[in-house]
Design a protein around this nucleic acid. Structure first.
Lengths: 144, 144
DNA sequence: TTCAATTAGGATAAAAATGTCCTAATTGAA
DNA sequence: TTCAATTAGGACATTTTTATCCTAATTGAA
């Protein structure tokens, strides 16, 4: 469904949010370890998220990644997915047609519409806060 | 959502079904042209579908691909997707966790469940016949 | 029987995604 | 001031996906 990069990006964001609530900055190393991802590759993805203004980075000793405590509940999954994978998951045709709309639909256009719309709604209504809280309370996990 | 190979596979199957209804066999060349796909790559995908028993092939002059007229309505999109992309779209964790279930869920497990279930239902309940009929009646298209 | 049309399939190439390595730049603390 | 810790980012390597090329095998018709 999502690219590996996007999966890592989502998990990393959740972990950063979790720590930012406690005023803790986290290093790339700690993130990669926690979400079980390759460090250097994860670094690229984090850079991307920083550029998109979704997370913040602080260079140098005692540096790391963080998210403004007050914006954690306003960051939606859709923003992360968009930053990394783009919007093709919403907008793209299920069969890859260049043009695919109500007036010129691919054979599965209507059938896909509801699936894609539900996915879109879900991503646009799920924020980092709720995901982080599930990790904190131990009802959800970031690895294994 | 799906791989390019899968998109081609679905479109090719629809076109073959459409012709099989009229007792016509279609060549690789005609298929690739109709669905706007690279010929040699499409050939590999068709071979795959033949091996999975979803379509039939006839070698030699006047050969081509066809689908038994009576099975067109029984072939589900899920069979084609499974043959080409496997079942990860159903079974895989949205965040790529090795283990992800009710007792050890990833942070988006529940939220994804409904999306994935709807997709699964859709694929398992959509058959080639209805898709082919939409092309025949001109309400849906295989390219552009 | 010969031949052109056609699928099968191995080998290879190109492109995209994923992953690694190395150096530069920055920063806070000792 | 120096140094270790850290992010930034360019270059490269590997793997996977997508695409191409070539030859073999099959088949029906002339």
């Amino acid at each position: 469904m999502f690219s590996k990069a996007c999966e890592y990006g989502i998990k990393a964001s959740i972990f950063i949010a979790l720590n930012s609530y406690e005023g803790k900055r986290v290093s790339l190393k700690a993130i990669a370890k926690e979400i079980n991802s390759p460090e250097a590759f994860t670094a690229k993805i984090l850079q991307d998220l920083v550029r998109h203004g979704i997370i913040n980075s602080v260079k140098g000793a005692y540096g790391g990644f963080e998210i403004d405590k007050h914006s954690i509940s306003t960051i939606k999954l859709s923003q992360i997915v968009n930053a990394i994978d783009g919007d093709s998951i919403y907008k793209g045709c299920g069969l890859g047609l260049h043009r695919c709309d109500e007036n010129h639909p691919c054979p599965v256009h209507d059938k896909f519409k509801s699936v894609r719309d539900e996915l879109k709604q879900m991503l646009e209504h799920t924020n980092l806060e709720e995901l982080a809280l599930d990790i904190k309370s131990g009802v959800a996990f970031l690895k294994t």
